[in-house]
Design a protein around this nucleic acid. Structure first.
Lengths: 341, 341
DNA sequence: CAGGGGGTTGACTACGTAGTCAGGACTACG
DNA sequence: CGTAGTCCTGACTACGTAGTCAACCCCCTG
């Protein structure tokens, strides 16, 4: 009974069993009107008996739509990208779309392009660049489907591009303002890789807040999102007695920074204040618990996905992007500067 | 020129332009033999000119294969699951398969079942349960495709199930033995949720090592993989002066445990040794840097994916599973117990 | 009773690809 | 020169679904 039929049942099989036409089965499965209740139930019973499922391939072929969205995500397991992916998938499923995922090989030129191409080859109705980076000339796509990018992402400004700049500027500003408000003379910044738009956004927010306060801009320190790079940055900062406040572009790097400060014997927040970003689950359990910026991944995903799906389904130009708010979570890693004696 | 053709070009269009039959285009695109070099190049040129891509839907319909694997992953952004996903995707793409992802809603009964169903509805040739959990009676699937589960996962023992128990037993054993070898009287364990097979594996490894050493088994403490649950467990352990060594089932919980010990004024490793698991990037930058167990996600993914693809493509029963080795990374969170005075 | 209109159903077909099979060109060999 | 064997090519068709269009039933209205 197990290895009976090679092929899975089709609507024709269901139709035969229910004594109706294949088209009627199609109507029932799609919830179309103009099917009598009796027939509907007979068809559903037959479908259940045979274990029938609509064949997506045939459906896609006929409709010219895959009901599938491709996501280009990052080839490493950072908290932000992972959370975004989870949120995107939840929303996509609710909206009736399946999610295909491909990862970029960080640092490998043209890997975003390769990833997009892989998605187009699979067949998707839209593409999301979850962690857009600027690969420069490498990225020049003429996508035949709408593309949603969480960042400006030049090079894809084809006819049907959706862009939203949701993650970063506001966060950088809020973090910096928090530290300035505590009385720090200025705020240093350990940034993400500069070809990442998320990193650039945060840098911009940081700069904007410093400018607004009329405060000097310390040199930028660039990491690669990893705790190791945060540690390196922290070692450097630890040698400079003028540093009293640091905004780190993600919590993972902040862990490295905290470690470097601990090794250098610099008390946080007594001697230096640190603000992270992302509010990873571990942030509250670091030593000291980390003040950080929390992003609402669910909201960003929901907003972005809605734009993309609208564009897919209506072909309408997407609405302009909102700046989604960042939320400051104050813990114990920030404090006013020590009195200058 | 941008909004010209509604439909993307098909092999027929390429054929017309190249002056050959549609079938010949198909042959060229599939790299079949028996096509003259001249024709091949003419076809490829035409395809390039039109921006032709094979239509996956039509292909899948014809072949009865989707060339797609579905992955059921965890609805939260933990390091282990994320790393597994990345590794799986890389291997899948190399093997010519696309990856669909769905997330479970942790703690919601039947969500694995729902996830699997969602994948079957999308159309996949195989399914991977990346983080198998035991939902008890909830999970009873008669999958029409091979299923690969990184754990025993009863309830799907349909005809074509592939199982590998790659992650955990060995790790639990190695961690425990390391602590015993340092001279600790026994080792406590902060486990993952007991319905997770990964958690059970680690528990088994821990128990086995204790039994082998002929050492008493302390009561099991169960967390939920989160730093918060680790913190709770740590607070409890901190009250017991007999505790000198703890094996924590993942690094995230270990962060919470370390925090609890720090708050309680218990020196690690002076007073208590802690071993984590996963070797998250932050592990080396905690205070103190965490001794942990590293799993080779790439190897596990490659091995599992190979089994699954073999099964998909040949229908052959899969080979028995290996126990993939766990690698101990010794840092500063473990030391011999303090001399009992 | 004729005509009309809505509810319900089915026959036919397109969608783009690759498998099957037949046939033409050309070479090698007896 | 005939025949067999390669190499190359194309016509035809199936795959499972849903759109189009026509037809039928039944009840209501004039």
């Amino acid at each position: 009974m197990s290895l009976a039929s090679r092929r899975p049942p089709g609507s024709t099989d269901v139709a035969r069993l229910a004594g109706v036409s294949q088209k009627t089965v199609s109507r029932v499965m799609n919830g179309e009107p103009y099917v009598s209740e009796a027939v509907r139930e007979r068809v559903l019973a037959a479908a259940r008996e045979l274990g029938y499922r609509r064949n997506t391939a045939a459906r896609a072929l006929n409709l010219g739509r895959f009901h599938r969205i491709g996501v280009v995500s990052l080839g490493s397991a950072l908290y932000g990208p992972s959370s975004t992916l989870v949120a995107l998938e939840r929303r996509a499923r609710e909206t009736g779309y399946a999610l295909s995922i491909v990862h970029t090989l960080e640092g490998q030129d043209g890997s975003v392009m390769a990833a997009v191409d892989s998605l187009l080859a699979q067949g998707v109705d839209g593409i999301i660049l979850s962690e857009p980076i600027d690969e420069g000339q490498e990225l020049r796509i003429e996508p035949e489907v709408p593309v949603l990018s969480f960042g400006p992402t030049p090079g894809i400004d084809g006819p049907r591009v959706v862009v939203t700049g949701a993650s970063g500027v506001d966060a950088g500003r809020v973090a910096t303002e928090h530290l300035l408000a505590l009385g720090h003379a200025t705020v240093w910044h350990v940034a993400g890789p500069s070809h990442w738009w998320a990193a650039r956004d945060r840098i911009n927010g940081w700069r904007r807040a410093l400018d607004t306060a009329g405060v000097a801009q310390p040199p930028l320190i660039e990491g690669d999102w990893s705790p190791a790079s945060g540690y390196t940055a922290g070692r450097m900062l630890a040698t400079n007695p003028e540093v009293t406040a640091v905004f780190v572009a993600n919590d993972e790097m902040a862990i490295g920074v905290l470690r470097a400060f601990a090794e250098a014997g610099l008390d946080v927040p007594g001697r230096i204040s640190v603000v992270g970003m992302d509010d990873i689950p571990a942030a509250a359990y670091l030593s000291p618990p980390l003040t950080t910026i929390r992003q609402d991944f669910e909201a960003v995903a929901a907003y972005g996905l809605k734009l993309l799906v609208d564009e897919i389904e209506s072909g309408a130009a997407a609405a302009p992007h909102d700046e989604l708010p960042a939320h400051l979570v104050v813990r114990e890693s920030t404090a006013p500067p020590r009195e200058t004696s």
